[in-house]
Design a protein around this nucleic acid. Structure first.
Length: 268
DNA sequence: AGATATTCCTGGAGGC
DNA sequence: TGCCTCCAGGAATATC
């Protein structure tokens, strides 16, 4: 499941072959994912030169010299492949550069999205306007301000992209475990002292995952493996019933319809 | 307003 | 082996 580190790794992998290149060919093989593709996507991208790539929260950004930015979201099953040997089911969008590099955007569950905006209007795009700060830029004071008065569970609030933008289920579970904070604790009731543990924990789990993803990029040679997917050892995520490493046993509960993994002994 | 539930979609896992 | 049900997830939308 692509979260911020996976998107960051994907963007870095794409940048190697896309940055500075001209897009020679665009093939839309399906008209929509979560929502319809822009009707003029192919026309606006074909012949454009990529001037840079970026990331905002879990969105990947591909900027072109036509004041356009293609924004992709990988949803929960999206991935890009570079120089695939053959097409796969659910390859929805294909790009080819002036160097002959072929890219395929694959997304079986179609929770992803592709949008095209004028680059100078990105900040006004409603999905971006609603986003909170990047977790790697977050400070404890800022987080405290955003949690103030909120009675909802910290786990749910950290998943809310308006509070912090880019955290998903896995890294929220991992960060709360590292900070020793119980996922059911009301967000507004957490002391600044403890937020000063939580914010670096968020930073660290993301930075470590990005580093792990980056290390898989180094030997990125298999054309049929999706960019941005790498194995990472988690302390609690998907480890129900197993030891947490701190002397406790990982438990699973459901919050807001999704699984939370935590250690009742280490997290209070 | 904040909190909660529902919706989208497919592949994989598990039960029988 | 096959058929069934259930579950995973992010974000938009609806409802209380």
């Amino acid at each position: 499941m692509p979260e911020l580190p996976e998107v960051e790794t994907t963007v870095r992998g794409l940048a190697r072959v896309l940055d500075g290149r001209r897009i020679e060919r665009v093939e839309v093989r399906r008209e929509d994912l979560r929502r319809a593709f822009p009707k003029d996507l192919g026309q606006r991208l074909t012949g454009a030169r990529v001037t840079g790539l970026g990331r905002r929260a879990k969105y990947g950004l591909i900027h072109t010299d036509r004041n356009d930015t293609m924004i992709f979201h990988l949803g929960m099953s999206g991935s890009w492949r570079i120089n695939h040997s053959r097409l796969k089911k659910h390859d929805h969008l294909l790009l080819e550069t002036d160097e002959g590099t072929r890219l395929a955007l694959n997304d079986p569950r179609r929770f992803g999205s592709v949008d095209l905006l004028h680059t100078d209007e990105l900040a006004e795009w409603p999905p971006f306007k609603a986003l909170g700060p990047e977790p790697l830029d977050l400070t404890a004071g800022e987080l405290r301000r955003r949690l103030a008065g909120r009675s909802a569970a910290i786990k749910l609030l950290l998943l809310d992209q308006r509070i912090v933008a880019g955290l998903g289920n896995i890294y929220v579970c991992e960060a709360l475990y590292r900070a020793g904070i119980h996922p059911l604790k009301a967000g507004g009731s957490i002391s600044l002292e403890r937020l000063k543990r939580l914010v670096p924990a968020i930073h660290d789990v993301l930075a470590e995952a990005i580093a792990a993803g980056g290390s898989t990029l180094r030997d990125f040679a298999s054309p049929d493996g999706g960019l941005g997917y790498f194995s990472k050892d988690f302390a609690v995520y998907d480890r129900e019933g197993q030891p947490c490493g701190g002397g406790g046993t990982v438990r699973r509960i459901v919050q807001g319809g999704r699984s939370t993994f935590y250690c009742p002994r280490c997290q209070r």
